[in-house]
Computed example of a mutant assay.
Amino acid sequence: MQQVQAVIARSKGAPVSIETINVPDPGPGEAVVKVQACGVCHTDLHYREGGINDDFPFLLGHEAAGVVESVGPDVTGLEPGDFVVLNWRAVCGSCRACLRGEPWYCFSTHNATQKMTLEDGTELSPALGIGAFAEKTLVAAGQCTKVDPSARAAAVGLLGCGVMAGLGAAINTGNVTRGKSVAVIGCGGVGMAAIAGSALAGASRIIAVDVDDRKLEKARAMGASAVVNSKETDPVAAIQELTGGFGADVVIEAVGRPETWKQAFYARDLAGTVVLVGVPTPDMKVPDIPLIDVFGRGGSLKSSWYGDCLPSRDFPMLVDLYLQGRLDLDAFVSEEIGLGDVEAAFEKMHHGDVLRSVVLFESGS
């Protein structure tokens, strides 16, 4: 067992604290990873606010990259010294989705069996089964995806959650390909990644929609060919006008609200696709849409789970594209901060001042 410093959320809405935690030696199928960098994601804030569940205290952080320090018995294909991006959906290989050749839908993903604890032995709930606002963390070996070690940890660690969710929503779930028109509603980190993914896939027109002109300006830099401030303009009408009166082939909703999902529904072309990647709260309901409109417009209404990614397939490919200069992951890193700056990063997030604040640890880059 080792003791390290980590960011803990002890109770709903309370400021986070830096505390000493116990990290067990890895057991069968587990690995200890020395964290180099970890992004501050909205999901971490949701945990702190009690929006996920009430299994306090939480060990926050999950968008991370680092180096494997040790592995437990029976671990194959992973060894100390490997540079990895952590993922929160370690596939099982044996559930009905995996057996039918669709492991990105794995219905039995798993985490480390042992628990990290506070000094007094109180068990911690790691965010998304990772808990990477810590100098070291214990994860399932399947949560470690090896990538090119020359990559910058602060950038590629973001593939662990939000950036992969957005890229995958466009490329995997939305099947954006050459010549398709795309609209992205909501230009936070996930929406920006959906724009970048659409550009990478060769979309003919990419329309960014948000209520913040600062975000829309960043969206242009990410590859948007047109922007719409939905506080000033009806986004459905604007998207239709920008697509010859038809609507976009793919509309990606990256907000997670009924009203913006309804906008996405009507902003797509006939036989078009809506992708919901924004995360709603449990109280939100599907908006009142006539069933004849659902039938008459055809197409697909999809949800995107983690960008429908397969980490072992997608992470190395995207890191290679980053190293080739074809995918600008550095653009998502708004600032690099220390472990004690997480609470301030949450405040900046509220004000829309950052895409991602990234905590750097010793040896991070």
Rank of each mutant, 00 (worst) to 15 (best):
L45Y: 14
S365D: 14
T76F: 03
V190G: 05
D212A: 13
C92S: 06
G245A: 01
G298E: 12
N53R: 06
A154S: 15
V275N: 07
D249K: 10
T117K: 14
A90N: 09
Q263G: 04
F346V: 04
G166S: 10
G299M: 02
R48E: 08
K115F: 05
G191A: 06
M317W: 14
D283W: 08
L124F: 05
Y266K: 07
L355D: 04
K12F: 00
V16W: 06
R356N: 04
K348E: 13
D74V: 00
L318Q: 03
C161E: 06
G13L: 06
S303L: 13
G121F: 06
S108Y: 09
M192W: 08
R48W: 03
G278P: 02
L291Y: 12
A344G: 12
D314C: 05
L99A: 13
M349V: 00
L200P: 02
M164D: 06
D269T: 15
A9G: 06
L276G: 13
Q143V: 01
V209S: 03
C38G: 06
A248E: 11
H46R: 12
Q3R: 14
Q240S: 10
C38H: 05
V85N: 13
C106T: 10
N53F: 01
Y47M: 11
A254G: 01
F83M: 09
G66V: 08
L167E: 02
G61N: 03
H42S: 04
S312R: 14
G129K: 08
L270I: 13
C38Y: 07
R257K: 15
E253Y: 01
V277E: 11
M317I: 05
Q3M: 06
T173Q: 13
D55T: 08
G168D: 10
V184R: 07
V85L: 08
S108T: 14
L339E: 12
R96F: 11
S125T: 15
V228R: 11
M349N: 07
L323Q: 15
L329Q: 08
T137F: 04
I185C: 07
C38Q: 09
G131Q: 05
K136W: 00
S11Q: 15
D249A: 07
L78C: 07
V342Y: 08
A194G: 00
K146D: 09
Y105R: 11
A264S: 13
V23N: 04
G93D: 02
M284D: 12
G352C: 10
V23H: 04
V294F: 13
M192V: 00
G160K: 04
L138H: 05
L167K: 02
T145H: 04
K231L: 09
D74W: 00
Q114S: 09
D210W: 08
E217A: 14
N53Q: 05
P316G: 08
V176M: 10
R268T: 11
G245Y: 01
R10A: 10
A219G: 02
T137S: 07
A183Q: 10
K285M: 13
E343M: 01
F246S: 13
R89P: 00
R220W: 00
V279L: 14
G61R: 03
L270D: 12
